[in-house]
Computed example of a mutant assay.
Amino acid sequence: MNRVTEQESNYKHIEKMSVLEVLQGINNEDKQVAFAVEKSLPQIAKLTTAVADKMKKGGRLFYIGAGTSGRLGVVDASECPPTYGVPFDWVVGIIAGGDTAIRKAVENAEDDVAQAWKDLQEFNINEKDCLVGLAASGTTPYVVGGLNIARQHGILTGCIVCNEGGPIVAGSDFPVEVVVGPEFITGSTRMKSGTAQKLVLNMLSTAVMVQLGRVVGNKMVDMQLTNHKLVDRGTLMIADELKINYEDAAELLSKYGSVRKAVEASKS
């Protein structure tokens, strides 16, 4: 397999560049990422629609990945409950090597082809659920094994990779291939590839939550009110929606505990 993510950088003698030249080079490469994602929008739409359909019927969304890809999945999953007020087990991110690997690389964790399925068993994954594999290379054994076994059990599979083809794409019902080209630092896929995966994850989880009714107008009406900034944001949402003053909106939010409940109760 010809992995574009491992091809040599287009930049030579980077160590001799000035700081500004290094930054300009990285920025020039980053500019290409959104256009690469744009080319993959039809694939992203298919994956998103399939995941939303499953979740409307009570299914969950799982991400598996190693290294940067795994961390990005954990981040996306962890942000769904506070942003959209959904249960913590609706979207689950699993990284090769366990939670320790979020902060510190775990040696050889991504090379075990059987471990992902073992990790998924802790959550009793079943045919109602969806599994999305994350890997810049498209070849990570941990992800390949997890997807293949999940498919054998009738679980919907998808992936977000930065090379065309490969075993992870082959193991996915709904693959997303975002080819961003060689990295600024040869093989450093935490850069353009990681950015591309983050953009796609933002799209996937956000669009799914919209389909699940977790956005009204353009507002996060079910967000968790975990700090003063979010309480203030929620109060302003209510004031704007009901055309009332800030103090009355704050009282409603305190009484009902969420933007959605406060607005619905006031309009009923």
Rank of each mutant, 00 (worst) to 15 (best):
M1T: 02
N2P: 12
N2R: 02
T5S: 01
Q7T: 05
E8R: 05
N10C: 05
K16R: 10
E21P: 07
Q24H: 04
I26Y: 06
K31V: 09
V33G: 05
V33M: 02
A36I: 01
E38C: 11
S40V: 04
S40H: 04
S40K: 09
S40Q: 04
P42E: 10
Q43S: 11
Q43C: 13
I44A: 13
I44C: 03
L47D: 10
L47T: 11
T48S: 11
D53V: 13
D53H: 13
M55Q: 13
K56Y: 04
G59P: 06
G59F: 11
R60F: 12
L61V: 15
F62Y: 15
Y63E: 08
Y63C: 07
G67R: 05
G67F: 02
G70E: 12
G70Q: 11
A77C: 06
A77Q: 09
S78L: 01
C80T: 09
P81D: 13
P82M: 00
T83S: 03
G85D: 12
V86G: 13
F88N: 15
F88H: 15
D89P: 10
W90H: 15
G97F: 07
G97D: 10
D99Q: 01
T100S: 08
R103P: 02
A105S: 02
V106A: 00
E107R: 11
E107T: 03
E110K: 04
V113M: 14
A116H: 01
A116V: 08
W117I: 15
D119L: 08
L120W: 09
L120N: 12
E122G: 08
E122I: 10
I125W: 14
E127C: 09
C130D: 10
G133A: 11
T140I: 05
G146I: 04
N148K: 15
A150I: 12
H153N: 06
G158L: 13
I160S: 01
C162H: 00
G165T: 01
G165A: 10
I168Q: 10
A170E: 14
A170I: 05
G171F: 02
F174T: 02
V178K: 03
V179D: 13
V180F: 04
T186Y: 04
T186S: 07
S188E: 00
M191W: 00
A196W: 03
Q197E: 04
K198L: 00
L199K: 07
L199G: 05
L201T: 02
N202I: 02
L204W: 03
S205K: 07
S205V: 12
V208F: 13
Q211V: 05
G213A: 03
G213F: 05
N218P: 07
M223P: 01
T226L: 06
K229H: 01
L230F: 08
V231L: 07
M237D: 08
M237P: 06
D240I: 05
E241Q: 13
K243L: 14
D248G: 14
A250C: 14
L252C: 12
L253T: 04
S254F: 14
Y256H: 12
G257F: 09
S258Y: 14
V259F: 07
A262N: 09
V263N: 11
A265W: 15
K267D: 11
